[in-house]
Structure formats: C-alpha cells, structure tokens
C-alpha cells in the first residue's frame, strides 16, 4: 500500500523553519508584553518615579533582551528539528554499507519524503540481493545434484560393460552368447553416451510421443529381468492396457537401472524380487519389492539412486515413495503427467 501524499525534504525543512520562527515570534511578543507588565507593576508597587528617558531605556532593554532570547530559542529549536531530520541519514548509510558488504539489513522507513524513498529502495535492493543469492544457491545445488545423479547413473551401465567384457575375455563362449554380450555392451555404451549428452546439455529432456507406451514399458521390464535373472529370482507383473504418452526413454531407463543397481547391492539373493506395473485413473504405478540383505554396508552413494528416481518421477508430475520395514524394501513410483 503506498501513501500518495508524498512530501519533499526541502518543504519539510522549511516547515521546521516556519515552526521555529513562529515559536520565536510568539515568545518575543509574550516576553515583551509580560516583561513590560511586570516592570510596570514593580515600579508602581515600589513607588519608583521614572522619567520618560528612564521608561524608554527600560523598554528598549526589555525589547533587546526579548529579541536575544527569542533568537536563541529559534536557533535551538530549529537545530533540534533539523538534527532530527538529518539523524536519519546515518541509518540509511548503514543500510547502504550492509548492502555493499552483502549482509542482511533492513533500514527503518521513516517519513514519506526522498529519504524515506531512499530507505525503501535500499530495502528492496537488499531483498532482491537475498532472493538472487538464494536462487543462485538453489541452481548451484541443483547442478551439483544433477552431476551426482548422472555420475551415479552412468556407473550402472559401466559396471555392466565391465562385467560383460570380463566374461568375453574369460574363456571360450558360444558364438551366439558372444554376440549377445557384445550387443549388450553396445547398448550400455549408447546408454552412457546418452547420459553424458544429458550432462553436457544441462539436463534437457527429450520427450517422445508413444502411441502405445505399454510396449515400451514391457521392454524395460524385460531388460530389467534379464539384467538380474542370473543372480535373482524375478516376479514381474505387468497389467497395462494400451495407452499413449510422452516419455523420455533415457529417464525411464535410468529409473529401471537405479532399481536394478540397488537390488544388486542390497537385495537378499535368497528371496525373490517383485516388480509390477499398472495403470489406473490416468496414473501409471511402478512397484518394486525385495528383501534386504542382512549384511549391507551403506556406501557413500546410498540414496543417490533413489533421489534420482524421485526427481524423475517429479518430472512426470508424480512421486516415489520408499518404505523399509521388517527387512523388506518397497518402492512405489507414480507417473501422472505423461499425456
């Protein structure tokens, strides 16, 4: 809310001058009038006879004294009032200093003149500076999170490439199996390339329209199963009717890679791993459940994969909910905005 009655500092100082002058004039009149009255009363009560010269002399002294005292009162009053106005300037200067050094500081806003406007502007600049700093910090944090998340996600296909390369170099393998592993290495290399492209593009999305996204998700679940079936028993349940949607395949691959990476690190190999996909009321729900290994050691990268899944689910207007209870790990990822 702004007050439309703006005043100028010069007019306010003139106002103070006028008040001081009026007070001094009133005081002069009062002093002279009453002093003359007191002098007359004194002379009368003391039966003093005064000549005209004496009277004139007394009157002129009263006038002079009255004038001197009035001038003194005028000067003192005006100095007090001016000092009051000017004492605001150091407060404003303190605000400017704080702004310069980047500290948080609010200048008290007094009056509706140029100094008050200056104080308001300084406060606005200080608020803006604070907001910009916060936005910068948030952007920096987001950038670091993206780098951390992508680095973690790159590690999963890289680990697969290393495993398959070791298998290829280990011994005699049938030609079909060798070709299969080479194909997997090629796919994982492409995946790493796409992830580094995301890193270089600053996280830009590449949404593609799928007329039947069910096929895409079935393929992702199949790849998920095949990456884990050597070490785990997988129970997959996909109950999807044909549906259309816009998806970034790289993002979905990262979700499944993070799930499989966590299973490899933390799931109990003696128990089965369950994964299910369903579509209801426009919400695509991906659930995964496994028993947690008793002897896990949480590494530095613990939680980064889950954070990445949550972030990707957020990009589709959804969420990821993680529960760990009685040795069972359960994650439910919901995608809502993909049409």
């Amino acid at each position: 809310m702004t007050d439309s009655r703006k005043s100028k500092l010069s007019f306010e100082i003139l106002g103070d001058l006028a008040v001081s002058l009026a007070a001094a004039v009133c005081l002069f009149c009062l002093l002279v009038f009453l002093a003359l009255h007191i002098a007359d009363s004194f002379v009368y009560s003391q039966n003093i006879e005064m000549t005209d010269i004496d009277l004139d002399y007394m009157t002129s002294r009263i006038f002079s004294l009255g004038a001197i005292i009035s001038v003194l009162v005028f000067v003192m009053l005006f100095l007090f009032l001016l000092g009051q106005r000017l004492s605001y300037i150091p407060k404003i200067a303190k605000g400017i200093e704080a702004l310069h050094s980047g500290e948080e500081h609010t200048v008290p806003v007094e009056g509706n003149d140029e100094l008050g406007d200056l104080a308001r502007s300084i406060n606005y600049l200080s608020e803006t500076q604070k907001r910009v700093r916060a936005e910068e910090a948030a952007l920096q944090s987001e950038k670091e999170e993206l780098i951390r998340s992508l680095s973690h996600d790159i590690r999963t296909p890289l680990t697969s490439i290393m495993s398959y390369s070791e298998l290829l170099t280990s011994g005699d393998l049938p030609e079909a199996e060798r070709r299969n592993y080479l194909e997997l290495i090629r796919k994982k290399s492409l995946q790493i390339k796409e992830l580094t492209d995301i890193l270089l593009d600053g996280g830009a999305r590449k949404l593609e329209r799928f007329d039947d996204a069910r096929l895409l998700f079935c393929q992702l679940v199949d790849e998920f199963e095949s990456s884990l079936e050597d070490d785990f028993s997988i129970e997959a349940k996909v109950t999807l009717s044909p549906f259309a949607g816009n998806f970034d395949v790289r993002e979905l691959q990262r979700v499944f890679d993070n799930l499989s990476s966590n299973i490899r690190k933390y799931a109990d190999r003696q128990s089965s791993v369950a994964i299910s996909l369903s579509l209801a009321e426009g919400k695509l729900t991906l659930s995964q459940e496994n028993r947690i290994r008793a002897d896990i050691e949480k590494s530095e990268s613990y939680g980064i994969g889950l954070k990445s899944i949550k972030r990707i689910a957020g990009l589709y207007g959804g969420s990821a909910c993680v529960e760990e209870e009685h040795g069972i790990f359960r994650i439910t990822v919901v995608f809502t905005d993909f049409s």
């Binding site: 007070a23 009133c26 005081l27 009062l30 002093l31 009453l34 002093a35 004294l65 009255g66 005292i69 009035s70 003194l72 009162v73």
Partner: peptide
C-alpha cells in the same frame, strides 16, 4: 524571560 523561554 529565562524561565518563560526555557518553558516554551
């Protein structure tokens, strides 16, 4: 005069 001035 002094008292009056001071008072005002």
């Amino acid at each position: 005069m002094a008292i009056t001035a001071l008072s005002l």
